[in-house]
Design a protein around this nucleic acid. Structure first.
Lengths: 218, 218
DNA sequence: TACTCGTATCTTGGATCCAAGATGGAGTTT
DNA sequence: AAACTCCATCTTGGATCCAAGATACGAGTA
């Protein structure tokens, strides 16, 4: 569930994080089969924690399990991409709406600082920082399940962004929209903040969908 | 993730289903510790599939894992109840909105048949049938991830409903609202269907919250 | 009497072992 | 030549074994 829990965590939990990152980053290619023995050797452990980790990742939709036939990295799928952004819009609007009444300038400052880092970061770091930016704005809503859900959705969105090798103009446009959202937050303009967030997410989805189809036809 | 996948499934998958139901039904009490050995004996298997099942259920938020300290059934929490219904509203409105353009009379008929069964069912079956009713209406949206998400949310809502021992008038009111939603669907009145669904969910949340606080103070 | 430290016991987590299902190829048959 | 069957091999799934962390209890001391 991608909880924000940062405590020590057992080995399996670490493996979940590492394999999840590997899938998001595309090091583990979509559709490739994951053999337990291989992963065990790769992460120098036994098959047992790998098995548990794969089941967790299956729950997040990043791998697909078939009984007695093993696991494959979830394939890239235009429908899933669309669905992901639709769900993100619904979930993030809710979070934004609930967070806004409790959003302090300190919070917005923190998000603004993250946006500054995004501006000077590359594609590899964009997803992580982008997620942090959004979650920071939503954090005051105090809804742990909702935030975990959003975090998980961002992970798969990040995967699609890297897969499509999103262009620079995508990052620039996104940054502009971030600044507009921050501005609306500082002004405590609820309607604008919600509207801008909605557009920000939906248009990002459209753009990535476009990139994906483009890539598929080439 | 509570996929609708109904294929044979390995032992672990079956265990997940059984333990999930036991938690929802309250047979496994909130806060009680789950010892692997006990569960293994109870389901006549070894600890191994139990361990995997617990991790999956942790992902769904039905159990809480603490490294080296085992698992407990997720405690009842008024905040989580509220959050659950807020998330349901957001997710189900999205599903409804996407499904309506593709909703055939056959689909609505099927949902209506489920509603008839709900009317003559008891508290124990309400949750399952209620979930089926809603999912049936949303199914034409063709969004597997979204539907799985909604299904999972319904599971924890069901748990709270049973825990609060929801009164009969709750079930009656819910049935009336179901019929109103069906009516709006037959009329293809999009606005009304969305509005009624929103109220249906939010008021159910309020009611259960009320019951829960009542129970807590007694 | 209350508090602390140490030990015995319990439970989880990881590794290994074994059985069962799936895959691939060779050989046979039509 | 194509297809089917049977068998060797590979991989997963479940059980058992062992180590390490956590808990509980009791002895000893202030």
């Amino acid at each position: 569930m991608t909880t924000g829990d940062t405590r020590k965590g057992d080995r399996t939990e670490l493996l979940v994080r590492e394999i999840r990152q590997a899938i998001i980053a595309g090091e583990l290619k979509p559709g490739s089969t994951l053999r337990q023995e291989e992963l065990a050797r790769a992460y120098s452990t036994s098959r047992m924690p790998i098995r548990e980790a794969l089941r967790v990742l299956a729950g997040e939709g990043l791998v697909q399990l078939a009984p007695n036939r093993g696991a494959v990295v979830a394939p890239i799928d235009a429908n899933e991409l669309r669905e992901n952004f639709e769900m993100r819009e619904a979930a993030e609007l809710l979070a934004m709406r609930l967070a806004l009444p409790h959003l302090s300038n300190a919070h917005i400052d923190k998000a603004a600082a993250l946006q500054d880092r995004i501006a000077s970061a590359g594609l590899a770091e964009f997803g992580r920082l982008n997620k942090a930016f959004h979650i920071t704005l939503y954090a005051p809503c105090e809804r742990p399940r909702l935030l975990a859900h959003i975090s998980s959705l961002h992970d798969v969105a990040d995967r699609y962004m890297r897969f499509t090798l999103a262009r620079l103009d995508y990052l620039v446009k996104s940054s502009d929209e971030h600044r507009a959202i921050l501005d609306a937050c500082y002004r405590r303009d609820t309607e604008a903040a919600l509207q801008l967030t909605s557009l920000h997410i939906l248009e990002a989805g459209k753009t990535l969908e476009h990139y994906l189809l483009e890539k598929a036809s080439s």
